[in-house]
Amino acid sequence: MNIFRLAGDMTHLFSVLVLLLKIHTIKSCAGISLKTQELYAIVFTTRYLDLFTTYISLYNTIMKLIFLGSSISIVWYMRHHKVVRRSYDKDQDTFRHYLLMLPCLLLALLINEKFTFLEVMWAFSLYLEAVAILPQLVLLQRTRNIDNLTGQYVLLLGAYRALYVLNWIYRYFTEENYVHWITWVSGIVQTLLYADFFYYYFQSWKNNVKLQLPA
């Protein structure tokens, strides 16, 4: 495993920890999109079906279980926890996320590495992950006051994606036969979606003002 991959996984892990910290200690999910969290729960459930079929490493298995467990429990907290759910910005979080799933499924049926159930689900999870952040970005734009934890959560998620792109470049040059077009294209699309957010985040950080996205 190279340093970019490890750093990518760690930023992903930190993003989840930041979100859990916000939910557990502050008992708030203000500014967090339930739609995006539901999409992530679906992304990890469909991608990690290979937990039952292929063993890669203990690290891999543990990380998969963490991402599965955390994404599902975050959805549960936002929907059912009696305190946390009250802070959910339901009226602002109106992205019709189910509409993203059908095109992703159709694309996965058409473009996959092999036409098997696991491979189609795997491709579906990559396409869906690429667009899963959209409801969150829309919600950020609508929320006038973005708190620090929410800003850091999205920043860490974006950093995780950018580090994965560096990891692919590194692997392409150091490993033989390492070519994964589906992962790369959907991963680059996903990273580009963060570009705008990065820009405003660093502007606000540089000028030492509160993060606000233009309407």
């Binding site: 290979d50 890669i56 891999n60 990380m63 990891n167 490993e175 036969n177 390492y178 994964h180």
Partner: peptide
């Protein structure tokens, strides 16, 4: 293996 390279990522 070649086939599963890439599937080792999260």
């Amino acid at each position: 293996t070649k086939e599963s390279a890439g599937k080792d990522e999260l």
